[in-house]
Design a protein around this nucleic acid. Structure first.
Length: 273
DNA sequence: ACCACAACCTGGCCGC
DNA sequence: TGCGGCCAGGTTGTGG
C-alpha cells in the first residue's frame, strides 16, 4: 500500500502527537512482524524509550528514540499505524501494540502480515542501501543518466528499484510515466537527457499531488486515524484499464512488467517514435 | 546483468 | 453457496 506520499502523510500526522511521548511497552501477537531483536527483547527494550523525532527514508518510517535506538517500520502492502485510545477495540489484523505514556496506543495493523518492525541502533540495518530521495538534489539528471546508462530494463522497473530512487511504488511509477509520456516498457538506457528531465519532473509532480491528497486509498491505505486518502479519485491511468485516457480518450491498457501490473495509454505513451 | 518466479499472507472479486 | 482462479500499493531470495 504505502509509497512515499502515504508514508509521509503518516509521518506528518504522527509527528506532533508522538514527539516527547514515551513508550511504556509493547505487545507482539504475531512474532514474525518484529525482525530485530527478538519479540521479547523488542518489548523489553522499547519500554521507557522517549520519542525525540520521526523521519522517513523511502517507504520506511524511522522513530528517533532518545537512547539512540531507532524504531523502524515498513508497512509493505497492507500495513497501517493507527493511533487509538485503549477503549477503541483493535481490529482483527492488529499484530503489535505499542503503548504510550499518555494512555494512547500505536497499533500496527496488517491484513497480509508482510509489514515489519525493527528496534536497532542503526536504521540502515533495517533499510539496507537505498537510492536518493526523489526531491533530493542527489537525484540529479547526471545521477539518473549514470545509473540507467548501462541498463536495458524497462524504465518502469527502474523506477521501482529502491536502490535507484527511494519511495516510488507501482501507483506513482505508472502516473509519472503517463505524465512524462513514456512507455513503461521502454528500455531505461534509451532515455535522453531531455526525457530524463521530464521524467524526474513527472515523478516529483505525481508525488506532490498525492501528498496534497493525503495518499491513494485503492484498498487498504489508512492514515493514523483510520481515514482514507483522496488521490484514488485523481489518478490518470493506475487501475484504469479499459477506461478512456483523460488526455486523448484512447483505452487505457494493462501489461505485466517484472511481475507487476503497468497501466498506460498506448497513444500518449508510444513505444516506437 | 537481467529475468522469471516463488515466497511471505489474506481477502475480494469474478465466473462457473 | 461453494470452489477455483486471479488480483493486490512491496521486498527478498533462488535459479536460469
Amino acid at each position: 500500500m504505502p509509497e512515499l506520499p502515504e508514508v509521509e502523510t503518516i509521518r506528518q500526522d504522527l509527528l506532533p502527537r508522538l514527539v516527547g511521548r514515551t513508550f511504556t511497552g509493547a505487545t507482539v501477537t504475531w512474532p514474525n512482524v518484529v525482525r530485530a531483536p527478538s519479540p521479547n527483547e523488542f518489548s523489553r527494550r522499547l519500554a521507557g524509550q522517549r520519542v525525540c523525532g520521526l523521519s522517513r527514508r523511502g517507504k520506511y518510517l524511522v522513530f528517533c528514540l532518545e537512547s539512540g535506538l531507532r524504531l523502524v517500520v515498513h508497512l509493505k502492502l497492507s500495513g497501517a499505524l493507527l493511533l487509538r485510545e485503549p477503549a477503541t477495540p483493535p481490529d482483527r489484523f492488529t499484530h503489535t501494540i505499542l503503548f504510550l505514556d499518555n494512555g494512547f496506543e500505536l497499533r500496527f495493523s496488517d491484513l497480509r502480515k508482510f509489514g515489519r518492525l525493527w528496534l536497532v541502533p542503526d536504521e540502515a540495518e533495517a533499510t539496507g542501501a537505498l537510492g536518493p530521495e526523489p526531491f533530493d538534489e542527489a537525484f540529479s539528471l547526471e545521477y539518473m543518466a549514470q545509473r540507467l546508462g548501462k541498463r536495458s530494463i524497462p524504465i518502469k522497473s527502474a523506477l521501482l528499484d529502491q536502490s535507484f530512487v527511494a519511495g516510488i511504488g507501482n501507483i506513482y511509477a505508472d502516473e509519472a510515466l503517463f505524465a512524462a509520456r513514456i512507455h513503461p516498457a521502454r528500455p531505461a538506457n534509451t532515455l535522453d537527457m531531455d526525457t530524463l528531465h521530464h521524467l524526474r519532473d513527472a515523478v516529483r509532480m505525481a508525488l506532490l499531488k498525492a501528498l496534497g491528497n493525503r495518499g491513494t486509498s485503492f484498498s487498504d491505505y489508512r492514515d493514523p486515524d483510520g481515514k482514507e486518502g483522496r488521490n484514488q479519485f485523481a489518478v490518470a491511468v493506475f487501475r484504469q484499464t479499459g477506461k478512456p485516457c483523460p488526455r486523448c480518450g484512447t483505452t487505457i491498457q494493462r501489461i505485466k512488467l517484472g511481475g507487476r501490473s503497468s497501466h498506460f495509454c498506448p497513444s500518449c505513451q508510444p513505444l516506437g517514435g
